[in-house]
Computed example of a mutant assay.
Amino acid sequence: MNIKFPYRSGIESLPSIYEHLKQLWQVAMLLDTIGMPLEDWCPPADTPDNARRNVAFDKNGPSPAAVAIFHEEEKADPSEKFRILGVWNGKEDDGGAVLLHKLSIASNHSRSSFELNSKGVQALEKKENIVQIINTLLEIFPAPFIQVSPPPYATRHAVFEDHPGVGWMLYLPEILTPAQVPEAPELIPVLDKDNKRKGTIVVSVPNETFSVKNKEHVKVANAIEIRLADQDLLPRFSNL
């Protein structure tokens, strides 16, 4: 299951690598509580075995080894406008996951983005865990939406090319009601720090894990996308 979104950072200069990594650490800390161990995450290297020799995070934040590795990478290919940091959980094939954060300054035309890409991670196949992750991501990033779907959905099954797909779940900064989206079997309110409603998680399949192999799952997600687009509630990538 993949969780991703683009966003505009609004920053005028890049933070330190430590501060940049700290945002991924915040996500990793949450993932640790749902069964994806903090100590599994490792920074990049030339081989998987070499990557596993270093840990990216500990309970206090990004590790000195990870910061040093990314410093060396940046020296080799410096940029003042954007930076991409990624960590891997050390597992190949099923159970594998990658956290990626591209950070771009406000004057750069490129958008910032966050991605959690995974394959066969059981913790990411539970609805309650995904809802918890979405709420945490909204505390860290100014996400204009958050889409959750298996990898093939966005490229092969979504209705629109210039809109995010609903897939399994889609967070929108809109207060949606069942009357607006009757095709959605579940709408989960999202609250801000003052306990006021700030958005909605639209869920296409409430009682099982979404699968593109299930035609009914895809049919429901597509119907929700069309309904949202008809009401101009589905954002366009080109407008972000």
Rank of each mutant, 00 (worst) to 15 (best):
N89A: 05
N89E: 07
G90M: 08
G90C: 05
G90D: 03
G90P: 04
K91T: 15
D93E: 08
D94K: 15
D94E: 15
D94M: 13
D94P: 15
G96Q: 02
A97H: 10
A97N: 06
V98M: 13
L99P: 02
L99A: 03
L99V: 02
L100T: 00
H101C: 12
K102M: 11
K102R: 15
K102C: 08
L103F: 08
L103Y: 10
S104D: 09
I105P: 02
I105C: 00
A106H: 11
N108S: 10
N108C: 12
N108W: 15
N108F: 15
H109N: 11
H109F: 13
H109Q: 12
H109A: 07
S110E: 12
S110R: 13
R111H: 14
R111I: 15
S112E: 06
S112A: 09
S112H: 07
S112W: 15
S113D: 00
S113R: 03
S113I: 00
F114R: 07
E115Y: 10
L116D: 05
L116Y: 08
L116Q: 04
S118F: 00
S118W: 00
K119C: 06
K119S: 04
K119N: 11
V121G: 03
V121W: 13
Q122P: 08
L124Y: 09
E125D: 00
E125L: 03
E125R: 07
K126N: 10
K126P: 06
K126Y: 09
K126Q: 13
K127A: 10
K127F: 08
N129M: 09
